[in-house]
Write a protein that binds this DNA or RNA. Structure first.
Length: 647
DNA sequence: GCCGTTTTCGGCCCGACTGTTTTCAGTCG
């Protein structure tokens, strides 16, 4: 969960019940769980709050219905305790006293400290209790002054690790965006693959699951036992290693830097608004001097599928698999799947000599009577159930993409002309491209006035005619990225809007929207969708990954309202902004949009030719969000899309 | 705090690594 800054309990909406939304309750449960951790509570108690939060965030039914029927306890993972707290909040607008006290008595600086690598709640609490440390700045000062080292259970190394960890946190907020992780991970994986003795090398962890941000890199290697030492030695000689944190026979911990990339680390063109949110020019400097942690694990080939599955995660998915194994008289660990009676008292790798054989991960799922689950779906958001019943989705792939909407040109703040963008799309094998420059109110992005927009329309018309005459299978759709004005109004008069193929409505007054409450924002977004000229809601929450949180909004509600509009015959879709800095709509909501029948448009929001390639990032996230070919606009042919726009 | 074909107690996924210890606690995935 992003942004640990200044947690506080939300205020009840004025006209309840319900006084709080499902997403608000979910957030509070998560925060209570973390605060309990920091207060040294029973870890299982902590977990039940975190589980409860997860359950609610994945839940798509109306929470208030459960509350008013008194059926909350029927939900698995919600017991008497959580149910009574939730009920009190939703029905009376009042948080349980014990929860409120946690918020009041826990310094918010402690929450931020959880972001420091290798520092968890126990030691944070200890330093708070013994040294009076209340925030990261005070912790840094205490470490620099040598106050940590003499404490029981700490030492010189832990003190230095804290100093280093704070430095890392300040530079990168500890986590990195997926695209950065993939570039480091894939480059290093390729280097390792070339080492003699390495039978297989595979990037695992959250990068393989395509999480939008990642902590560090996990790479699993299949290596014969007698080659482990030689391979480890070779790894330590590879380029790109800034530091070796540890090197044993089965695990190597490294810090990688940009010397991994022979031709340097280039970021490419970044949309000015995005760049602003992630630190401006200093950001590029930061990334070029950046580092990333990597863990390499060496196992024998017959363990490889188990180790790969284990380190791919997620933790929640693995827990479900292990429980399933237990129900079948089996034990699952990172080395094997072992029948109980054979394992006896043996543990770990010792027990694994009796493991069932697995040539690949699919075999592991087969042993557990499940269909194979691709890494993107391993988040325990219903994939186990679907794998059991045979209802796993047939996920989209890049080959389904025939074009993309939401692209900018030099007419507003793009770096390439209309013709250049179109030619690039043709080169990519697409059969259509949607152009949507910024609307007139967005002065900082050189927003387009009505006359220039109409002129662009004429140019597009001419180009389309030309391609038609040439027999070139390509078409441009003219849209606009309209600012959302007060009351869900769009940025042009109706007669101008009527000339366009599509209108992407995007909120850009982020500061104002972030300062407002969830209810107001939700209503405004719904009004925006209700505007007859709105076709697509652009970057729905305005978040910038590792830059800023989105504005508060109940996207479930917005999606439900959108579904109703679609049922009434309107043409509406939601953007999955494919920029690796945004990836907004969040993948967690894609699955719900799909269930409601709300189409998703994977939009690169390209501000340059290279920006069009961001569609690849969007496809990855769409897959993570369970989307199939029929759920996205990008798989339509030009004729199908044209028909879709005209309703 | 949740859960239950061992249901009101006593479990809760499992193992490795690190740094600190001399048998273990904390953290991570």
């Amino acid at each position: 969960m992003a942004g640990a800054n200044s947690w506080s309990l939300p205020k009840p909406r004025p006209n309840g019940p319900p006084f709080f939304s499902r997403s608000q309750i979910s957030t509070v449960l998560h925060q209570v769980g973390v605060l309990l951790e920091l207060n040294g509570a029973n870890p299982f108690r902590t977990r039940s709050y975190l589980n409860g939060s997860r359950t609610l965030s994945a839940m798509t039914n109306d929470l208030y219905e459960y509350v008013s029927n008194g059926t909350l306890v029927d939900i698995k993972g919600i017991g008497k305790g959580l149910a009574s707290g939730i009920t009190q909040a939703v029905e009376e607008g009042d948080w349980p006293k014990s929860w409120a006290e946690l918020f009041e008595t826990t310094p918010s600086g402690l929450i931020e400290m959880l972001g420091i690598p290798n520092l968890g709640p126990k030691r944070i609490k200890m330093m708070h209790d013994e040294l009076g440390v209340e925030n990261i700045a005070e912790l840094a000062a205490a470490a620099e002054a040598g106050l940590i080292e003499p404490m029981k259970g700490f030492g010189k190394k832990s003190q230095q690790k804290i100093i280093d960890g704070i430095e890392l946190l300040h530079r990168f907020h500890a986590r990195r965006r997926l695209n950065i992780g993939q570039r480091y991970g894939e480059a290093f994986e390729a280097l390792i693959s070339g080492i003699p003795g390495v039978i297989k090398a595979q990037l695992a962890g959250s990068t393989r699951r395509r999480k939008e941000t990642i902590g560090d890199l996990d790479i699993v290697l299949a290596v014969d036992l007698d080659r482990h030492e030689a391979v480890t030695k070779s790894i330590l000689g590879l380029q790109g290693i800034a530091d070796v944190k540890g090197a044993g026979d089965s695990k190597v911990s490294l810090i990688l830097d940009t010397s991994l990339f022979s031709d340097g680390f280039q970021l490419g063109h970044i949309d000015a608004q995005v760049l602003d949110a992630i630190g401006g020019d200093a950001y590029e400097q930061l990334e070029s001097g950046g580092t990333i942690d990597a863990q390499i694990r060496l196992v024998e080939p017959h363990h490889f599928p188990y180790t790969l599955a284990y380190f791919t995660g997620s933790v929640e998915h693995n827990i479900r698999l292990r429980k399933r194994a237990i129900e079948r008289g089996l034990r699952l660990n990172e080395f094997g799947l072992i029948p109980d009676e054979k394992a006896g008292g043996l543990k770990g790798i010792e027990a694994a000599q009796y493991s069932l054989l697995a040539n690949d991960e699919a075999d592991i799922y087969r042993h557990l009577e499940l269909n194979y689950v691709v890494p993107e779906l391993r988040e325990d958001t219903g994939e186990i159930e679907a794998a059991e019943s045979g209802d796993l989705p047939e996920l989209i792939s890049y080959s389904n993409i025939r074009g993309a909407l939401h692209n900018h040109t030099t007419l507003s703040d793009g770096a390439a002309s209309l013709e250049q963008m179109a030619n690039a799309a043709i080169q990519m094998g697409w059969s259509w491209l949607g152009i949507s420059d910024h609307s007139q109110s967005l002065k900082v992005a050189n927003g387009v006035g009505p006359d220039a927009l109409l002129a662009q329309g004429k140019l597009i018309h001419r180009l389309n005619q030309q391609w038609d005459k040439d027999g070139t299978d390509f078409r441009i759709f003219q849209g606009v990225e309209s600012d959302v004005l007060a009351g869900g109004k769009l940025d042009y008069s109706d007669d101008i809007l009527a000339t366009l193929d599509h209108v992407i409505a995007s909120v850009h007054a982020i500061t104002k929207w972030r300062a407002r409450d969830e209810v107001t924002n939700t209503e405004e977004l719904i009004k925006t969708m209700e505007n007859p000229y709105t076709t697509i809601l652009g970057h729905p929450t305005g978040r910038i990954l590792q830059g800023r949180d989105g504005f508060p909004v109940d996207m479930h509600e917005v999606l439900r309202a959108t579904a109703e509009l679609i049922n009434d015959g309107h043409t509406k879709a939601i953007e999955l902004n494919a920029s690796p800095y945004r990836l907004d709509l969040d993948w967690r909501l894609c699955k719900y949009a799909k269930e409601l029948g709300v189409p998703i448009s994977i939009n690169p929001d390209a501000h340059s030719l290279a920006g069009l390639f961001d569609v690849h990032h969007g496809v990855q996230i769409a897959r993570k969000g369970w989307l199939e070919k029929g759920d996205i606009l990008n798989s339509k042919s030009a004729d199908e899309l044209s028909a879709y726009f005209s309703g």
